[in-house]
């Protein structure tokens, strides 16, 4: 059984490292700072409009490497399968990972598979590690935001979370919104080429834009002020949030990023982003201020101001 599964991955991922059938892969890295990240993926449902858990795992890992300003090169992947998980579904996930890896320009060079008893897992869990290299001098970090910096967002928020919610059995609604899951390596390469001194780069995944902005404010010990009108949210995402009592700011994204740069660099960065397919709707949404309390504030459409807080736990639909 395990051998069958291994064959399936070797065939799908198709690269010289895997074909050697070693328990590890020996790789050469170009000059620069080596970047490494690891991530676990659990998602329900496993397949959703615009993607599936496999695509999510590859893109998520690629993006975590890219958020260091690096070009992602190699991935490893470990699969925890629940006994009885349909091989057909697994093949679909493997194919989709292979396609995502090709798009992102990375190779999945080593991996592992374990099968657990039925009931001990939820179909399939995927753990991935990614390795990449950042050009010398490029070192964005969440603790590097400075007062005066411009906050740039790459596109509309909430698509991924809403696409997944729409498929949940008990919530089911019809929407044309699909997951925004995408590899952001090309976009980041273009950004780094235009503005090497990007202070902060983050992808607002779980917890949404609200969590990411709060993390940055907290780690950099600054305040952030964003303008509600400048943050793009698709009509259907807004409507889904209205129906379920959620806030788009807390909804997960899988193909968006937030960049903080010196105000003088903002236009150049936004121009470079808009030339890329995953940065077409890039815009400045706010700026950094000095604030010991590390608050993230939003200028509302009413001209008032409110705080944007971290959300406690996963956003749950509410009736009141």
């Amino acid at each position: 059984m395990t051998q069958l599964i291994d064959e399936l991955f070797v065939a799908a991922f198709d690269n010289p490292w895997l074909s050697q059938r070693n328990d590890q892969a020996a790789i050469e890295l170009p000059e620069g700072r080596t970047v490494i990240t690891t991530d676990g993926f659990v998602v329900s449902p496993l397949f959703f409009p615009g993607g599936d858990i496999g695509m999510l795992a590859v893109n998520g890992t690629v993006n975590d490497v890219a958020m260091a300003g690096a070009r992602p090169l190699y991935l490893s992947a470990a699969f925890i399968l629940e006994e009885g998980f349909p091989l057909g579904d697994l093949a679909r996930i493997a194919e989709s990972m292979a396609a995502a890896a090709r798009t992102a320009g990375v190779a999945i060079v080593t991996g592992d598979t374990k099968v657990v008893q039925r009931g001990s897992g939820d179909g399939v869990f995927i753990a991935t590690t990614g390795v990449g290299v950042a050009p010398p001098g490029v070192a964005p970090s969440a603790d590097s935001a400075r007062p005066g910096d411009a906050v740039v967002l790459s596109g509309p928020i909430g698509d991924h979370g809403v696409a997944v919610l729409a498929q949940r059995e008990a919530l089911r609604f019809e929407t044309t919104v699909t997951s925004d899951t995408a590899p952001l390596a090309e976009l980041v390469a273009a950004m780094v080429a235009a503005v090497p001194d990007i202070h902060v780069l983050r992808d607002p995944t779980r917890g949404g834009l609200a969590a990411t902005l709060n993390e940055i404010a907290d780690q950099s010990a600054v305040g952030i002020v964003v303008d509600e009108r400048a943050i793009p949210v698709r009509g259907e995402v807004r409507a889904a949030c209205e129906l379920l009592g959620l806030d788009p700011l807390n909804i997960a994204n899988e193909g968006r990023l937030v960049a903080l740069v010196a105000a003088a660099d903002a236009d150049r960065l936004v121009d470079a982003m808009r030339g890329q397919p995953h940065g077409r709707d890039a815009a400045v949404i706010g700026h950094v201020i000095a604030d010991d309390r590390r608050f993230v504030q939003m200028r509302t459409t009413f001209g008032g101001s409110r705080l944007i807080d971290w959300l406690a736990g996963e956003p749950l639909p509410r009736i009141c």
Binding site: G245, R293, F295, Q297, S305, R306, L307, D309, R318, C320
Partner: peptide, 17 residues
């Protein structure tokens, strides 16, 4: 607890002010 609760509403939206 509830986002409609007076405390949660104040905490979430009004703490800074």
């Amino acid at each position: 607890v509830s986002s409609e609760g007076a405390c949660a509403a104040y905490y979430t939206y009004g703490r800074g002010r």
